[in-house]
């Protein structure tokens, strides 16, 4: 039996597709005929999406056309997978939720007037995660999704095993030394800490922001084990929507600084650092002027 896979890409970087295509196992499965790619603008030469068994959606929802595409595609799929952090939580493009759409486009339009030919599709007011538009069956977070997670997903496709995400945080998988006897350093800005960073010791112990405590496991702590602090690409833990709020709670337990404003020197940009990948997924997913009071005025404009 062949499993038909469709890959629909919205506003994306192709990293997710490259991550799957780089897996020898995946190419092997296609070569042996177990899996067939029915649609993907990157990998195959087909203009229309046909009925598929499983639909991978990558990229974030940025235009109204994206919404239309994904609604149309969801009717042709038995199962839908939100693949990668952009589809799951909005991803890094979601940081644009703090900027108004008109502002975002201002420079690209100037010195020309706004598009009159209507050939560019229109941006939505803000980025939303995929599950608010269509019902999804699986979420495979990560930027790009880590290989062990893709392996389990492939297993679930082929052998019908249930795909479940881990329920613990990155710290549970992290190999770094967290010796309690070692003194805790004051929180510092990453840029200033870089030259005396010790890549074998817990970063939070060294006063460097690491998103591990508030981030879902599944990557086998790839970044921390290779010397880089976690930036939170796997998204929030189960039963939580706000990675940033979780991390603020965690930081307050780690560091009791005096005066408390000192912590802002270490974390000068809470949105960018604490919810780099998950802003559109969180409880308050946008800047107030983007999703706030001025809606009536804006609707009439279009």
């Amino acid at each position: 039996m062949t499993i038909n896979i469709g890959i629909v890409s919205l506003a994306y970087c192709a990293g997710c597709e490259v991550a799957i295509a780089s897996m020898e196992r995946f190419c092997g499965l296609i070569g042996s005929g177990m899996v067939r790619i029915a649609y993907s603008t990157l990998l195959v030469d087909r203009e229309e999406l046909e009925n598929v068994d499983i639909l991978f959606v990558t990229g974030s929802i940025r235009t109204y056309e994206d919404i239309a595409i994904i609604k149309e595609a969801s009717r042709k799929a038995l199962k839908i997978v939100a693949f990668g952090s952009c589809a799951c939580f909005g991803g890094i493009p979601g940081l644009a939720n703090t900027i108004e759409r008109e502002e975002l486009l201002r420079e690209i339009f100037s010195p020309l007037k706004p598009s009159t030919t209507n050939s560019r599709s229109k941006l939505t007011r803000f980025i939303v995660p995929l599950n608010t538009i269509v019902k999804i069956d699986y979420m495979v977070p990560g930027c790009p999704p880590p290989e062990p997670l893709i392996e389990t997903l492939l297993d679930s496709l082929i052998y019908g095993k249930e795909f479940v995400l881990p329920k613990v945080s990155v710290c549970n998988e992290c190999p770094l030394n967290r010796d309690d006897k070692k003194p805790l350093k004051k929180p510092r800005r990453k840029l200033l800490a870089l030259n005396d960073i010790d890549i074998n010791t817990c970063f939070l112990k060294q006063g460097i922001l690491c998103m591990g405590p508030a981030t879902l496991a599944g990557c086998k702590a790839l970044c921390p084990s290779k010397g880089a602090p976690c930036i939170g690409c796997m998204g929030p833990l189960p039963n939580s929507k706000d990675q940033a709020a979780d991390m603020i709670d965690a930081l307050s337990i780690f560091y009791s600084v005096e005066p408390p404003e000192e912590i802002l020197k270490a974390i000068p940009d809470p949105i960018g650092l604490l919810s780099m990948f998950t802003l559109p997924y969180s409880t308050i997913p946008y800047h107030r002027r983007v999703g706030g009071e001025r809606i009536e005025k804006d609707v009439s404009r279009d």
């Binding site: 603020i248 408390p260 974390i267 809470p270």
Partner: peptide, 9 residues
């Protein structure tokens, strides 16, 4: 500490 960060956020 939490309130300080949250206020900035």
């Amino acid at each position: 500490v939490r309130a300080t960060l949250l206020k900035a956020y």
